[in-house]
Design a protein around this nucleic acid. Sequence first.
DNA 1: TGTTAGCACTCTAACGAGTCGAGTGCTAAC
DNA 2: GTTAGCACTCGACTCGTTAGAGTGCTAACA
Lengths: 349, 349
Amino acid sequence: MALDDRKKKILLAIIRTYLETGEPVGSRTISKIEGLDLSSATIRNEMADLVDMGYILQPHTSAGRIPSDKGYRFYVDQLMAEKEQKLEEREREADEMKDMLVEKADRMERLLKQVARSLSANTNYAAMISAPRYNINRLKFIQLSRMEANRIVAVIVVEGNMIKNQIINIDEPIDDETLLKLNMLLNTTLNGMAIEDINLSIISKMKQQAGEQAGIISEVIDAVAESIKADEDLEIYTSGANNIFKYPELADNERASEIITAFEEKKQLTDIVYETLSHSDEKGIQVYIGEESPVANMKDCSVVTATYELDEGIHGTIGIIGPKRMDYDKVLSTMKKLTNELDTMFKKN
Amino acid sequence: MALDDRKKKILLAIIRTYLETGEPVGSRTISKIEGLDLSSATIRNEMADLVDMGYILQPHTSAGRIPSDKGYRFYVDQLMAEKEQKLEEREREADEMKDMLVEKADRMERLLKQVARSLSANTNYAAMISAPRYNINRLKFIQLSRMEANRIVAVIVVEGNMIKNQIINIDEPIDDETLLKLNMLLNTTLNGMAIEDINLSIISKMKQQAGEQAGIISEVIDAVAESIKADEDLEIYTSGANNIFKYPELADNERASEIITAFEEKKQLTDIVYETLSHSDEKGIQVYIGEESPVANMKDCSVVTATYELDEGIHGTIGIIGPKRMDYDKVLSTMKKLTNELDTMFKKN
DNA sequence: TGTTAGCACTCTAACGAGTCGAGTGCTAAC
DNA sequence: GTTAGCACTCGACTCGTTAGAGTGCTAACA
């Protein structure tokens, strides 16, 4: 059986109505919608077909129909295609959203929190944003400074100007000259290197070069190496997790508990981010409906994600999580606007 | 009417039973408890008195009784007094908990997260911990390093070895000599100063001293000043917010939503922390029952907090939030052990 | 052949009556 | 002062009924 034009129209009408009301929709409701002009009986016949084809479900015999995952998928694909066409229009609309963001976000963390907040407030779903992250993390600059007699601060800057710190306690005091030498050694050896490539052989080579002070030096290098490696987990900021309580189908204890846990532990969100980043080249926005979700305990939700670019090769992810009955149209627009906004904002800097 | 010994016994029995079951408790249940040996009728009479005195409530005419906030307060006070007596015993028990904590927490953040997790896992309530914080924040060390021609990294260490960073973009390149001079100026002027005391007059004085390079210098100083002030909000880590779903009286949409929001936004948790810290001199552990809570939308919860000491004058707060029907005995023990553990752990370092 | 009106049928949500049981308050006896 | 006994209260639960929304099917129609 083919999904002809009339079936498509009816399917879309069913989905749109269901998105609005959240209740199973019956044939009569659809028959009253303008532009179709079919009797409820005809609609019923078509609906039966749509059930057979798997686009809609019937909770029980005498109830209306609700969209299946497949139905949502059809709707979203449809929507995405439309969006693609209307891209130019959208560009022009983009500045509507400007006031959503802070004029002056002096610190990345604050900006990210703000974005998450604005995203959740605008959509009424739970929102998250991952801090931008290099695909390849390259070291840019290392500086050791003596803080106290036997305490050193190491400042490590990686590409994209992310900064990491480490306080290093050393057994015996270190003198200025040694410190200078160490700084030179670290910078000449490691600058521009990808963090993945800093392996034991390089470290032992450095220790060799350090010669006499190998003792202190190895302490320092170990600490630096560890601090670079340490922070593998990406930072994720969330907002509006409480929005899920607005949707009865997610608000029951079990489901809510799962989602809340995901938002608190961040482990699952991290998975979503990685999944998104790994597909980021294909398409701007990604929609995971129900079972399609990268994490198992969101199978009653839809997850919409998008990547933004801070700079060549530095990407982050924004995402919203809500019921399958989600206002996809609005969410897609908002995401599109927001990523555009972020992209141009970062380009300027 | 006085709260004689028998009334006390009955009241405690009611509360304990209610804590276990979460259901209103009737006279017959109490009469069957060992050690009282009274008929249900007698219990009923006493219960009526206890209702009059405000220690227990009767949800409706033919239901059993549940403790009121006043009743819980009585119970908790009782419990705290007992704990005080048994302090020596407790000291000996303290190492039971040791394996709860990591052997080697190389980073403060990770340790704090770990503590929160262990606290929520041990109690089955929602847990939080605030990062230790100086009552008075003193600058300890400032270091500017040139990263690129017109970019400087400022590393600022405050007492307690908290580190802050700031990247400063400057209009015109800065030479080594100026940088050195600036470092000297910053350290000699600001070291040991309380952050609160860095005011405009000091800043303008520094600009004066900087003389010719006042242009660049003022940029730098502004950035440093801002980065110090910026981070006024304290860091709070949470765990086990989903535990609230285990308690039906908190799991309905409205209440759950409020608590979840509090845990996500952290604003309210911050209020609780400040409240706790401001009383930390009085007593180790604090219990807020229902309406006693420092934040309004936790009036259906009990909040138990305690302070730990990282070092002289550096305090942090741990807390758990759960239903009023909370296993206070266990919670108090756990908190006590945990703060002891933290205190001794930090003392050693 | 596709569309529509009509009708019997199904199923849920909502309501109300009736029952059960836990628990109370009161009274009278011990 | 304590207790046994009893009538009373009230929520939780069950069950049957009803109303209404929606369906599937059939027969008539264009």
